[in-house]
């Protein structure tokens, strides 16, 4: 009797495993496909791309990459993207996690109202903000600076980052923080020494999303700057898209070049944090 049951369970887990691998492999192909396509397409001619978008190139066109590297000031655009993305991620995450700390660990009047208002900010469509943003940035006198981009990117993502980080902070048991209070930790120590490290997961999640948002943002990068010396890599990618035609294959080459650093950053960052996480489980 017992044997039969074991057998059944075994069969079930086996079938489950097969099913699981079918699902995982499906997603593997599905998510890998765009990346592979992008790389292959970046080595074709435009005519080939439009003629048979899924075939291999007749000859590898590395000149597309040469074109991409020829974009004037590519190095500076890259550097600006790094400065702006890191700056805006740091600023945004600090501001959002500080706000989340207050909005998750304390109870006071208007707390939910403030939080709801913040969250509704996620909804505001970027396209309708262009005119007021130009006004604000002109008023602040920071048009055509990297700081304008850092400020705007930090501000735009406050709602989403706060929403994510607060969600994680809420799950930290009160006892942990109270223990800290008893140990004589003040407000700031409780934040920096207890809550901030314990909500790493949420913070890293929000930071990753924020960094990638900044890295890929184009509209404001163009709208709020005018000199090539402060612009970001996305402007370099659009170099190939003109009034009458777009040189897609060179653009794809530029995209491939531009995603490499963000990909490396993402992989190392994610790796370090998640491995650090498993050691200190905190969920209550």
């Amino acid at each position: 009797m017992k044997n039969v049951l074991m057998h059944k369970v075994d069969f079930k887990t086996k079938a489950g495993k097969v099913l699981m691998w079918i699902v995982l492999i499906f997603f593997l192909f599905y998510t890998l496909m765009p990346m592979v396509w992008l790389v292959i397409s970046s080595l074709k001619t435009n005519t080939e791309l439009m003629g048979s978008p899924f075939s291999l190139p007749s000859k590898l066109r590395f000149e597309n990459y040469a074109n991409a590297f020829k974009v004037s000031g590519l190095g500076i655009l890259f550097l600006n993207s790094i400065i702006v993305s890191l700056g805006a991620t740091f600023l945004n995450i600090m501001i959002a996690s500080m706000a989340s700390f207050v909005l998750s660990r304390f109870e006071f009047r208007f707390r939910e109202a403030i939080f709801s208002l913040l969250v509704i900010g996620i909804l505001v469509p970027i396209n309708s903000l262009m005119v007021p943003y130009v006004k604000i940035i002109n008023k602040l006198g920071i048009y055509d600076t990297r700081f304008a981009l850092i400020l705007v990117y930090s501000a735009i993502s406050i709602p989403i980052s706060t929403f994510i980080i607060r969600g994680f902070m809420k799950t930290i048991p009160v006892e942990l923080e109270e223990a800290g209070t008893i140990d004589g930790c003040n407000f700031y120590q409780r934040f920096f020494k207890i809550i901030f490290p314990l909500s790493r997961t949420g913070i890293v999640t929000a930071a990753t999303l924020q960094f990638l948002y900044c890295w890929n943002e184009f509209i404001y990068s163009m709208l709020l700057t005018s000199s090539q010396s402060v612009r970001t890599i996305q402007v370099g990618i659009r170099y190939f898209s003109n009034q009458f035609t777009t040189d897609y294959t060179s653009m794809y080459a530029a995209i491939v070049i531009s995603i490499i650093p963000s990909l490396i950053g993402y992989i190392t960052f994610q790796e370090q944090i998640i491995s650090g996480l498993t050691s200190g489980a905190v969920k209550g």
């Binding site: 501001i95 900010g121 943003y133 604000i136 400020l151 501000a155």
Partner: peptide
Amino acid sequence: LAPAVILFTVF
């Protein structure tokens, strides 16, 4: 809360 509220108000 101040930085978030200020930036939120402005932007």
